[in-house]
Design a protein around this nucleic acid. Structure first.
Lengths: 136, 136
DNA sequence: TATTGTTATACTCTATAACTATA
DNA sequence: TATAGTTATAGAGTATAACAATA
């Protein structure tokens, strides 16, 4: 196994696969996926964002954001409305119910993350996040 | 950005995206992609493997391995031959030329990994790999 | 009956190009 | 002319089901 577990690409890929499976399992009862949760997280953060701004924050294409928001709007957790200042833009906001569902799903996601990190001490978990952040 | 860079899923995804881009750029001149390199790594490791054994080592489906090996065989870096002991199995081996290409591409991949880890000290890089290994 | 390799197929995630409405 | 959102489409990467050859 040496050959593979010394490869950063292998480790990142399989870490992502395992974390993804844990997060999907944990958030699925709340009807929200991991990617959707990340969208809600930037929308819940502060001032309302346009679709393009949200896409740029997340590092996804604006065409990807369309499908993501279609699904979130169909679930009733976000709403789009035309910006009065620039009628080309859609302002996207969490609905009150969406905010509630976001918070419960976030709790479930955090638990899945802790499960993923179960083999690490709290200090090691913090260090892993710090090191990953440094590579961005 | 806080909201996103404190999420393990976001960090893993973007780390993988960045590393993937660096590795593809570095290995493309050798005509081998990052996933192909991982296949060659397990084949170069020790005794010859069947397609199924190689797939299991890598954690990919056996149908995925078929397409991967089709490409590698078309490039002349691996060869399939029927196992004499069990004629259902294909034994996969690196060709002599494939072994050479593998080693040059591996050197390029290692350089890309170092570039990815440039913001970390050598001790931190080692620690990152150790922590990721612990999560498997 | 079970296993290995294969093919066909489909699903997810993503990006590119082209359209529309607005600026 | 340029930008925001949208649609259609296509390309990776992956998995499931079914088949042929072999055990």
């Amino acid at each position: 196994m040496e050959v593979l577990t010394s490869r950063l690409g292998y480790l990142l890929k399989h870490a992502q696969l395992r974390l993804g499976a844990l997060v999907e399992a944990a958030t699925e009862p709340h009807g929200l996926g991991g990617r959707e949760l990340a969208v809600l997280a930037v929308l819940a953060e502060g001032r309302p964002l346009s679709q393009l701004e949200a896409a740029e924050r997340l590092g996804v294409d604006r065409t990807t954001m369309v499908a993501l928001l279609d699904a979130l709007e169909a679930k009733g957790v976000v709403e789009r409305r035309r910006s009065p200042e620039d009628r080309r833009r859609n302002i996207v906001e969490l609905t009150p119910g969406g905010r509630d569902r976001f918070h419960s799903a976030e709790t479930a996601r955090a638990a899945a993350e802790r499960e993923f990190l179960a083999a690490l001490t709290p200090a090691e978990s913090t260090e892993l996040l710090r090191l990953l952040r440094l590579t961005l």
